[in-house]
Computed example of a mutant assay.
Amino acid sequence: MAKPLDYIFPNPPAGLDPRALDLERIPESVAVIMDGNGRWAKKRALNRLKGHKAGIEAVRETIRCASDLGVKYLTIYSFSTENWKRPEDEVVGLMDLFAKTMLAEVDGLHEEGVRVRTIGDLSMLPQETRDAFGEAWEKTRDNDGMTLVVAVNYGGRQEILRACEACMRRAALVAEAGGEVEAPTEEMFEEGLYTFGMPDPDVVIRTSGEMRVSNFLLWQIAYSEFVVTDVLWPDFNRYTFLECLLDYQGRDRRFGGVA
C-alpha cells in the first residue's frame, strides 16, 4: 500500500503538485535507463567514475520513492553488455562500486521489505561483485515488498538469443523422445527470458534527454510507455520521478487498439 503523498513528497518545488498523482494508477512495473553520469562529471571537471558515484544517491532515492508509492517492480539498467567497451579503469571502478554499494545498501533494502534480483549474465563479473549480488538475493529473496531488478551485464539482443536457444533445446529433447515438436508460442519463448515471471514494464524512464533504448528489454517493452527527461541521472530525484509518473498517467494506453 502506498504511503501518503505528503510523506513521500514533503517539499515539492513551485508548480509541481503531488496531489495530481493518482495513487490508483501507479504503474506496477517501472524501468529506468540511468544516463548522464559521465556528462554530469564532465560539467564539473571530474572523472567519469565520480559521476557514477554521484548517481548512487539518485538510485537510493528512486528505490525509496518507488517502494513508498507501491510500485511492484523497479528495474534499473546498471551495466550493459556493450559497456565493457569503456576504458578499463572505468569498468573496474564500476564493478567495485557495484559490490560496495550492494553490500552497503542490502540491510536497508531488507528492512524496507525490498527483494533484490538481477538480470543479465553475471558469469563475466568479478567474483566480489557476483558475491555481493548473490548475498543480496539470498538475504531478500523471501521479502514481499517491491522487487528491485538490477540489470547488469545485460543486453536485450543477447537475452532474445538465449530464449531462442532454450526453445531449440526444448524442441530437440521432444524430438529425441519421439514426440511431436510444436511451434513455439510467446509463452514458451518467455520462459527463456531473464524476466520470466515478471510483468513487462508499464513505463520506461530515460534520463539525460537521449532518445534510444540502448539494447534494454527489447522483448518486454513492446507496449511500454516512454518518458524522457533532460535531467542527468545524478540530479534525478523523487520530484523528477513524480514528473515522469504524471507524464505517464497522462497517456492513454491502448495496446494497439482504437481510441
Results as ranks from 00 to 15, higher is better:
Glu88Ile: 10
Glu88Phe: 01
Asp89Val: 11
Asp89Cys: 10
Val92Leu: 13
Val92Trp: 10
Val92Glu: 12
Val92Phe: 08
Val92Gln: 13
Gly93His: 13
Leu94Gly: 13
Met95Thr: 12
Asp96Trp: 00
Phe98Gln: 14
Thr101Leu: 00
Met102Cys: 08
Ala104Asp: 15
Ala104Leu: 01
Val106Leu: 07
Asp107Leu: 12
Glu112Val: 00
Val114His: 08
Val114Arg: 09
Arg115His: 11
Arg115Trp: 06
Val116Pro: 04
Arg117Phe: 08
Thr118Tyr: 06
Gly120Tyr: 07
Leu122Lys: 15
Met124Tyr: 11
Met124Ser: 15
Met124Val: 15
Leu125Ile: 12
Pro126Trp: 12
Asp131Cys: 01
Ala132Ser: 14
Phe133Ile: 00
Phe133Arg: 02
Glu135Leu: 14
Ala136Glu: 04
Ala136Met: 01
Trp137Val: 04
Glu138Asp: 13
Thr140Glu: 03
Arg141Gln: 11
Arg141Phe: 00
Gly145Val: 09
Gly145Asn: 12
Leu148Ala: 05
Val152Tyr: 03
Val152Pro: 07
Asn153Gly: 10
Tyr154Phe: 04
Gly155Trp: 11
Arg157Asp: 04
Arg157Val: 06
Gln158Leu: 11
Glu159Ser: 06
Glu159Trp: 05
Leu161Thr: 08
Arg162Trp: 09
Ala163Tyr: 06
Cys164His: 00
Arg170Met: 06
Ala172Thr: 13
Val174Arg: 05
Ala177Ser: 12
Gly179Met: 06
Glu180Asn: 12
Pro184Val: 12
Thr185Gln: 07
Phe189Ile: 05
Leu193Ala: 07
Gly197Cys: 08
Gly197Glu: 07
Met198Leu: 15
Asp200Cys: 10
Val203Trp: 08
Val203Arg: 09
Val204Trp: 04
Arg206Ile: 08
Ser208Tyr: 06
Ser208Asn: 05
Gly209Leu: 01
Val213Tyr: 03
Asn215Val: 07
Trp219Ile: 02
Trp219Ala: 02
Gln220Ala: 07
Ser224Cys: 08
Glu225Phe: 02
Phe226Cys: 00
Phe226Gln: 11
Phe226Ala: 10
